[in-house]
Computed example of a mutant assay.
Amino acid sequence: MALHFERSEFDARRDRLMIEIAEKKLDAVLLFAQESMYWLTGYDTFGFCFFQCLVVKADGSMILLTRSADLRQARHTSIIDNIVLWTDRDGANPAIDLRNLLNDLDLLGARIGVEYDTHGLTAYNGRRLDEQLQTFGQIADASGIVNRLRLFKSPAEIAKVEKAANLADDALDAAMPLIKQGGDEALILAAMQGAIFAGGGDYPANEFIIGSGVDALLCRYKAGRRKLSKNDQLTLEWAGVFHHYHAAMM
Score class of each variant (00 low, 15 high):
226 R>M: 06
212 S>W: 04
82 N>C: 03
154 S>H: 09
56 V>N: 03
63 I>D: 01
200 G>N: 10
75 R>K: 15
51 F>C: 02
101 L>G: 09
26 L>G: 00
52 Q>T: 14
177 P>N: 06
164 A>E: 07
127 R>I: 00
105 L>A: 08
139 I>A: 00
66 T>G: 04
167 L>T: 04
23 E>Q: 15
119 H>R: 15
234 L>Q: 09
172 L>N: 06
112 I>C: 05
86 W>C: 02
92 A>H: 13
143 S>V: 06
216 A>I: 09
184 D>P: 10
165 A>H: 14
101 L>S: 08
153 K>R: 11
45 T>D: 08
236 L>S: 04
66 T>D: 06
67 R>T: 03
1 M>Q: 11
105 L>I: 07
74 A>H: 04
141 D>G: 12
23 E>C: 05
239 A>F: 03
215 D>W: 00
76 H>G: 00
8 S>V: 14
182 G>V: 11
35 E>F: 08
204 P>N: 12
17 L>A: 00
36 S>T: 08
78 S>N: 11
179 I>L: 04
47 G>F: 04
73 Q>L: 04
8 S>G: 02
21 I>L: 09
86 W>I: 02
183 G>I: 04
113 G>Q: 03
143 S>I: 06
82 N>M: 07
217 L>F: 11
6 E>D: 10
21 I>P: 01
11 D>A: 12
164 A>S: 10
197 F>V: 05
169 D>L: 13
75 R>Q: 15
85 L>M: 13
22 A>E: 11
207 E>D: 14
183 G>Y: 03
30 L>E: 10
